Computed example of a mutant assay.
Amino acid sequence: MIPLGPGVLILAIIALLQNKQYKVLWGLTIVFTLINIIYFPVYFLPTNTSFADQTIEVSAVSEELNNWLSYHWQRIFFASGALVTSILAISKTMVEGNNN
């Protein structure tokens, strides 16, 4: 997670700076990626650590796993959104390049 998320974010920012014509799509890609990244230090890192260190109360494990799964699906949604918007920006750029 650590190298991939920020790496994708940096590439999306570079793409935005080089291709301002599709700034809305690249902007959405950046926002979706940033939201996805934020989930890790805010929720997943401490929660996964509590599981690994066995510091979570046994009675809370079931509910926390449900929360974990819910947040995981949210991250999948944002990652998918970033993927779709970046593909749209790239494909529009390629079509435009072929028309010139």
Rank of each mutant, 00 (worst) to 15 (best):
N48R: 01
V58W: 08
N48H: 04
M94P: 07
I87A: 15
N66W: 02
N36V: 02
Y43W: 10
S59P: 01
M94D: 12
P6K: 00
S50G: 00
V61P: 05
F44D: 04
E57C: 03
F51T: 04
E64K: 11
L4A: 14
I13M: 13
A60R: 13
K23Q: 11
V42D: 09
I2Q: 03
I87L: 15
S91Q: 10
Q74A: 13
S50R: 06
S70L: 08
K20Q: 12
L34W: 12
N99W: 09
T47H: 09
R75C: 14
V8P: 09
Y39A: 04
F40S: 09
A60E: 12
T55P: 01
V31N: 04
Q18L: 09
I35W: 03
L69S: 05
A12M: 08
N99H: 06
G27L: 03
L65F: 14
A12K: 11
I37N: 05
E57D: 12
F40L: 02
T29Q: 09
S91I: 09
V8S: 11
A52V: 02
N66L: 01
Q74L: 14
K92M: 15
A52E: 04
A12F: 12
G5Q: 12
S86G: 09
T47N: 15
L16T: 04
I90E: 08
Q18I: 00
I56V: 09
L11P: 00
S91P: 01
Q54V: 12
K20G: 09
K92N: 15
N100A: 11
I30S: 10
N19T: 13
S91V: 12
N98R: 14
T49H: 13
S59M: 08
F44E: 05
V58K: 13
Y22R: 10
N67Q: 10
G5M: 13
L25C: 02
N67R: 07
I10R: 08
E57S: 07
S62W: 00
L9E: 04
F78G: 01
Y71G: 05
I37Y: 04
H72P: 00
Q74S: 11
M1H: 13
I37H: 01
T29H: 10
Y43N: 07
K20F: 00
I87K: 11
A60Y: 10
L16H: 11
L88D: 07
W68Y: 13
K20V: 01
L16E: 05
L83G: 06
I2Y: 09
N48A: 05
P3G: 08
P41D: 03
E64G: 00
M94G: 02
I10Y: 15
L45Q: 06
P6N: 03
I56T: 06
S62P: 00
